[in-house]
Amino acid sequence: MAALLAQLLLTGLATGAIYALVAIGFSLLWQGSQVVNFAQGDFVTLPAFVMLGVMGYGLPLWVAMPVALLVSLLVLGVLFRRVLVQPMLRHGVMPLVIATMALSIFMENAMKNVASAEAYPFPGLSGGIDLGPLFLDWQSAVTLLSAVLAVLALHLFLSRTRTGRAIQATAQNPAVARLLGINVDRMILITFLINAALVTLAAVLISPAYLVKFNNGEAIGLTAFCAAIIGGFNQVRGAVAGGLLLGVTETFAATFGPDQYRAAVPMVLLIVFVLFRPQGLLGRREERRV
């Protein structure tokens, strides 16, 4: 039984690590410019399709990945901010939220039109390693390791570099940041670019297991949104904790409970947190910190 629980924990952490990457994006965008991006899940699907498209020309995954990253930085980073966020944010947070919902519907239908409703396989790693009674498959191991390295790199970037500290200052108080000579607009753009890079990494890691389908973003986006809130919406480390907690809970719920209710787990947890700990696992009231 202990071995089964440990195995489930391992699998849940690997799934949760992907949720965490997407949830960090939610958190960063919120802190950087009060954007709650309901198209975030579709942001994961788009680079997956781009990679499949590039590989369709016979090119390997390692060539497809930088191409997808470039497209993500341009479309999900620069264009998303310039075309949608900047004009809509002037009208308040709610119109922007609705606009991101519209973007989600548009992206899903556009991807469906281009790639059909079929679920496409995505290259992943097979095999694994026996760790005593546990089996760690290479895909989960690479997923966990990649997510840990990405979170670590992001943490070091935000806390140790001049640009990272300027992003922190902007997230804390853009008006004061501007007084200190920080180019607030550039820092906000960088947070959008970081989000674009994170969703691309999430696409690489999640697609082998979930396949690539036009509406995959719905579940991923909703789960990551719940993870960000459960962890504490205004904390990157909260998003990591929320993602891992959701990944593990979902895996246990699917094993010991009816599988058809698995999708409800994030929402149930979200309701519990909203009722009993609205600031989330690691968040603090009224705090805004990267």
């Binding site: 140790r160 001049r162 500290r165 200052a169 200190l180 000579g181 920080i182 180019n183």
Partner: peptide, 10 residues
């Protein structure tokens, strides 16, 4: 530390 963030490294 943030007072000089636009000017130089930490």
């Amino acid at each position: 530390e943030l007072g000089g963030v636009a000017l130089g490294s930490a």
